[in-house]
Design a protein around this nucleic acid. Structure first.
Lengths: 323, 323
DNA sequence: GTGAAAGCGCTAACAG
DNA sequence: CTGTTAGCGCTTTCAC
């Protein structure tokens, strides 16, 4: 330690951390030696001693999905503002990978984790047992009481379905997302709820799984179009599947809105050309990330505080009326 | 430590790490106690003792760019296969943010870092001084000798420009990327080189900066179209700018290829509808990430090995001839 | 093969 | 305000 060049050792710690008062002259001396020797505090030793590391884990199921990248940015910004580093882990909708990253985070004694779980039954028991605070984001965790920030997916899906109906479409089908996530379940529930309130039956085959992917959305759309009772409108469970659906429609020479009603959860990423603008249920992704980080930071500060569940409201974005 | 329930302490370490021989009965006993007590090795203490952590840093300038997400996946997969965790840091093309993450990685004593630097002059001196191995990916670092994996951007840009010329376009302009990166510089150099070999002058205003962003590409395209000598073809320096350009063309009622030649570096992300398929210079992003991680792992194993520079070849993807 | 002991670099508790 | 002391949990000589 740089004590050699100055005075003590604990003093250096105090200077570097700046939380305990140190006299002017001493501080200056230490500072200059620190600068001269290019000393850097060892984060590992620090973490070992303090039993926590100033690092947050952030687990997202698909780093390629713009919704999650926006969420990541929000969480990162909030964490950085609080002096915490965010390590990003891409679980790839893969339970095994998620578990592996949980282990790593545990090993590294992160201060806490924000997780958009691969499944509503993802096992966060180890984290909780160790006292590592976690907050669920976008998707809820069942069976455990943790801070959560989600969107009201049921309401969003309901509004979406009703909107399509108001536009005059009579046979609205849905392409659903992953059934093991609460978002997938909730959006389907919202769709069914809307159909029920409209006194419309949901024909068999009118909810097709698109697996949250572009390819899945493409395949699901084809399946629906080729069914014996093709729908005249599609409510699509997320942005990636919507892109797949748009491609499938283009292949089938069908124009969105004009030939077939379309509405997607999540705003579509850039790249969708203006001719393909469709109405969406927008989510405040960046804000979800921010709020999640803030919740986590608060939880770290006060582990005993009551659990908070923040539910944000979806925003229906009707497509610009052509003209 | 779980010694209480068994025998010693060093032995537990030996069992858990499994690199030193331990007798059968002892090992079994230790294992069962470990399982029973739910013991977890503390990564921090381990790292402190060994002076390195089994963690790789991965710094990318834009997590929202599909090129980098593919690269990230490649690096992650290779690292995971070698038992290393990857922490992903989003530098946002921001030098200050990059520097901050360098600091953090240093503090956390990562085993090494893969970096797509914000600038070819990004200061990695601290990392190097500490002996932390780094490999530059996608973009080179000038002034330091480090392992590097890049694409031959000059060749790619040259091919692209020549291709447009072969297609019959006479006035090829370029939308360039960030000038502080080697990719930005090299691609512009390739364009100029091609123009020279074609004995074509590059009119003033024929290289416009698009700042690697969708918005920048949009603005640059408008500027070019509104100039006094509008080009009949655009070579665009990256995928995001190409998306912006496509939007600008759509707004101007110009059809790609038919009305104006278009060619983009990087394959375009999903979301581009089939009518907008344009030729591209493809990059093996996933492979770049893989190779970078492999290089880093090799470097960690042998810090004294000669520096390696891997240059991958671009692939020209002509658009499917319509029909 | 196994145990005992030392120490990685830091912070926190306690004296002075 | 500052120095001394004691460990955080692990790996690693060094004996046995």
């Amino acid at each position: 330690v740089a004590t050699e060049a100055g005075v003590s050792q604990a003093t250096v710690s105090r200077v570097v951390n700046g939380n305990v008062a140190v006299s002017e002259p001493l501080r200056d001396r230490v500072m200059s030696v620190v600068a001269e020797l290019g000393y850097r505090r060892d984060g590992l030793a620090r973490g070992l001693r303090r039993q926590v590391n100033d690092v947050l884990g952030l687990l997202v199921p698909d780093i390629g999905n713009p919704f999650f990248t926006a969420l990541v940015r929000g969480a990162e910004d909030a964490a950085l503002a609080a002096g915490l580093l965010t390590v990003l882990c891409n679980t790839d909708e893969n339970l095994a990978k998620e578990r592996k990253y949980f282990d790593v985070l545990l090993d590294q004694r992160v201060a806490g984790a924000i997780v958009a779980p691969v499944s509503d039954r993802s096992d966060v028991g180890d984290l909780l047992a160790r006292g590592t605070p976690i907050v669920a984001v976008d998707r809820r965790l069942n069976g455990v009481e943790v801070d959560t920030v989600t969107l009201d997916n049921v309401a969003g899906a309901r509004q979406a379905t009703l909107f399509l109906h108001e536009q005059g479409y009579q046979r609205v089908a849905m392409i659903t997302g992953l059934g093991r996530t609460t978002t997938g379940k909730d959006r389907r529930a919202g769709y069914r709820k809307a159909m029920r309130s409209l006194k419309k039956p949901v024909p068999a085959g009118y909810t097709v799984d698109g697996f949250n992917s572009v390819e899945g959305g493409y395949a699901a759309t084809q399946k629906l179009l080729r069914g014996e009772n093709p729908p005249d409108a599609l409510f699509i469970g997320n942005n990636l599947m919507a892109i797949g659906a748009l491609q499938a429609l283009a292949d089938a020479q069908l124009r969105p809105t004009t030939d077939i009603g379309l509405l997607s959860f999540d705003d579509l990423p850039w790249g969708t050309d203006p001719a393909h603008v469709i109405p969406t249920v927008g989510q405040p992704a960046y804000r979800m990330g921010r709020v999640a980080a803030e919740l986590l930071i608060a939880r770290i500060a006060d582990p005993a505080a009551p659990v908070k569940k923040v539910v944000l409201e979806p925003e229906l974005h009707p497509a610009p009326t052509d003209g």
